[in-house]
């Protein structure tokens, strides 16, 4: 029911003439009601529902100075107040959204949020690129190389890896550590160090540093 309400709001907001292929929003909701479970519509419906719950969580429950990020069914928040206040926040969130199942992990040890490594050093948040351990498993490497590097040349791969490093790393220390990872990965694939140095210089030059 909550998801259907969210869908109705969503359609009313984002479809200016309230029609899709000649069907009114009421018709669409009648077609969906009772048949969404297990259908390809389920996941988009869940994301539309989260789209509205995210706004409530951000506006009402989380301080403007904190970070709130969600990707699919995982969310990440920062918290600079007491643990007791954090537990009250979760109690309120659970009572307001009882249909959502909550599994909470802290970052006492670094974790990964999708492909971002997240942790803290004595309370200071850090982020970087997360590398799945299996990528370093030689037994799997040939298959994974094919998956990670389909029909691409090494220069594209390097540029993408460097862009990702800049986007994900919280500071220059993490960034330099990540460029080291990229370099090792390149050598592991049998390329020369010279290619890495050249690509890095070109990358810096492209971005004016």
């Amino acid at each position: 029911g909550e998801a259907i309400n969210a869908l109705e709001n969503f359609l009313n907001t984002y479809i200016p003439d309230h029609l899709i292929l000649g069907m009114t929003i009421d018709t669409i909701l009648q077609l969906i009601r009772g048949s969404a479970s297990g259908s390809p519509l389920t996941i988009p419906l869940v994301y539309i529902y989260f789209f509205y719950t995210d706004q409530i969580i951000m506006n009402d429950l989380i301080d403007k100075n904190e970070l709130f990020v969600r990707y699919r069914d995982e969310a990440f928040i920062t918290w600079n107040h007491s643990e007791q206040q954090l537990s009250s926040l979760f109690s309120i969130a659970k009572s307001r959204f009882p249909e959502v199942k909550w599994h909470i992990s802290s970052i006492d040890y670094p974790i990964h949020f999708v492909d971002i490594k997240v942790g803290h050093n004595t309370g200071h948040l850090f982020t970087g690129v997360y590398h799945q351990e299996m990528f370093y498993n030689d037994f799997l490497s040939s298959e994974l190389n094919q998956l990670q590097n389909p029909n691409e040349n090494i220069w594209n791969w390097l540029r993408k890896a460097l862009l990702k490093a800049v986007r994900y790393c919280c500071d220059s220390v993490m960034f330099h550590s990540e460029t080291g990872e990229i370099q090792r990965e390149l050598l592991r694939r049998g390329h020369s160090e010279h290619i890495f140095d050249e690509a890095l210089d070109e990358f810096y030059e492209d971005f004016g540093v």
Binding site: V166, S172, Y204, F207, G208, V209
Partner: peptide, 28 residues
């Protein structure tokens, strides 16, 4: 390397790309 400057320039690059993508999708 000035990392803050690099981040700033990559951020501008990302914003320009997102704006161009949005414009393309609106025109199509």
């Amino acid at each position: 390397v000035n990392y803050e400057k690099l981040r700033k320039h990559v951020s501008i690059y990302d914003k320009n790309r997102a704006a161009a993508k949005k414009e393309r999708s609106e025109n199509s």
